[in-house]
Design a binder for these strands. Structure first.
Lengths: 352, 352
DNA sequence: TTGAAAGCGCTAACAG
DNA sequence: CTGTTAGCGCTTTCAA
């Protein structure tokens, strides 16, 4: 039908639509971007023509004048980490629902790469979601002044952030362990540079004190499955009988090493992870862990960002209340998912 | 030092550099993009000034005139699938090594979304990597005429593609099973719409015939862990004693269900997966699977794409031979990784 | 409500 | 080798 005269080799521009409808390009632009400022009739005519001709707006050009790119950059520190899979999934969903584009950037755990990316991105994206930043609060805050920014799992003063309430999860985890008769718990720390790591440790210390549980700490450990082996060895050496790992990756790695060494989980040692990433439910044994709404964190981050950019579709992106914008820092609750890696404390048995 | 006069609120443009160095903007442009076509001295001066002023080129504007965006879109059909994370990791690494940007798009298994994305992307990216496309070969080929395109795990005539040689892997898997005494193998099929699925099945039939093994097939099954339960039930019902699953996700799901039902793996049933995704090594029992160089596939795809776009840095992106471009279709070898989910065939025991 | 005109930041002829 | 001149496709004053 309409294919013969449509498959020109050149892309359709507003000029083509203007010619086709007999109006000026500027009117076409308006009809497409600010439909209210145009006569209903011509508006209709223009939109029809646009559809007819298969018009696709050129975001580059649009960005050049308006300064808005309709893209957001999502920075992750290690694309390898399954934790981010879920974040990315969340951001991607929310973004595409709003018709926006996601720029994915892997900063590879490097503050320099992060800074560089942030600098280079300013022109390509309208906003940034920063996860597990290696930058200082001050640096983040300073950058946030120039570019709309939402951070995940970090709390720089004055910068909107999405937090996953792992401290709350830690509390549940300790209580669970206590209910199983444990009186000592070992924290298997993640990287020193991780904000969440310190946060979890402090939460652990606090709860432990309240519940009269003794705590110890080993680490730091890189957040990889492979780090679990060393962590497991250290835990065994420390005579631990229950441990809470910085994240599921380390915990899963520990599980493997413990089995290898003949340390039974949970009979000899209870292990709890954190995050409930892909795999936590089918490792051996399935991991008791703090289930975090990671994907939701990604979605919420985008929602906050889009809200600040004034780009909320409104219909389908409910905010947390009747207020204008979502709160400046939202904390998403975590809950403990008990699986088979935790069990009763071994009675009166402590390796020397 | 240089902060006082640097932190203007406006971004630095080539014009600023031109003013600072006393040359014309076009000279600045050249000095930055085609350094050879400019006097060494001025070139140096300009580059110094650019660095001094903290110049960051505006890709949007650059794209508008040159038509090149220095971005590539990577389309995946389901961002949830761990398989794609390795692909994405590969593309991301290779892209950022070349200083390019990655646009990640999740088409959510929908051909319409895929078409829409492809249309909308043409202006935002210089090329596209298409994984697990839901489009027909003809559609892909047609699109490839307009936009540089590389497909992964698909082979539309005339379109450059990166294949993972799972057929080769299937052969190894069957041989492995035969060496363990199995004479029957059940193929647990993936989605009907999957090109790889048919490809694996055909490879299986071929090898089986050659080795005198009987084959059967159940499915289709969606490529999720959750689909594994039904698959396991069907496999048991079919009296299978060895099966090869379309992918690790399904295989891992089967493992869980089989354990639940008291079917021992590998004593009662051997299970082999495909892909060797994150988790295949720590599920219970660890999965024998075809290890695919997934990340490498992503890297190679980008390399081919960049090669076609004439954007190969040259230094660090070796091609496969002394030829100009990498071959039009490269097949990456797969190898079988034997873990604990496969074992000797149960002797003379067949459930009714 | 619409059109004309200017210009976003950059590149690409074309002269000089 | 370098400057001048046009735009890329779109938005956005400013008039009409």
């Amino acid at each position: 039908m309409s294919s013969a005269d449509t498959d020109a080799t050149r892309r359709v521009t507003i000029r083509d639509i203007a010619d086709a409808t007999g109006v000026a390009p500027s009117t076409v632009s308006r009809a497409l971007s600010l439909p209210d400022r145009v006569n209903r009739a011509t508006q209709q005519r223009i939109q029809d023509a646009a559809r007819e001709l298969g018009y696709v707006p050129n975001q580059q050009a649009r960005a050049l004048t308006s300064g808005r790119t309709r893209a957001v950059a999502v920075l992750v520190s290690d694309i390898t980490n399954p934790f981010y899979f879920d974040v990315i999934r969340g951001t991607q969903h929310q973004l595409s629902a709003a018709g926006w584009t996601q720029l994915l950037v892997d900063t590879e755990e490097s503050a320099d790469a992060e800074t560089a990316a942030l600098g280079a991105i300013a022109t390509k994206a309208d906003g940034v979601v920063l996860t597990a930043s290696r930058l200082s609060d001050a640096q983040i805050a300073r950058f946030a002044e120039r570019t709309p920014l939402v951070v995940v799992n970090r709390r720089p003063p004055g910068v909107p952030s999405v937090l996953i309430d792992t401290p709350g999860g830690v509390e549940q985890a300790v209580q669970h362990l206590v209910s199983l008769g444990h009186r000592d718990v070992l924290y298997v720390a993640g990287p020193d540079s991780s904000w969440s790591n310190e946060r979890r440790w402090r939460a652990l210390v606090r709860v432990a004190k309240r519940l009269g549980v003794r705590v110890a700490r080993i680490g730091p450990h890189a957040p990889f499955v492979d780090s679990g082996a060393a962590a497991a060895d250290a835990a065994v050496h420390a005579g631990a009988t229950a441990c809470i790992a910085f994240n599921d990756l380390i915990a899963i790695g520990m599980l493997a090493r413990l089995r290898e060494r003949g340390v039974r989980v949970p009979e000899d040692m209870s292990v709890v992870g954190c995050d409930d990433i892909f795999g936590a439910d089918f490792c051996n044994p399935p991991l008791t862990t703090m289930t975090s709404p990671i994907e939701r964190a990604g979605r919420v981050a985008i929602r906050m960002l889009l809200g600040r950019l004034g780009a909320l579709p409104g219909d389908e992106l409910p905010t947390d209340g009747p207020g204008d914008h979502p709160a400046e820092a939202v904390a998403l609750p975590t809950h403990l998912t008990v699986r088979e890696s935790t069990g009763p404390a071994p009675t009166a048995r402590r390796p020397s």
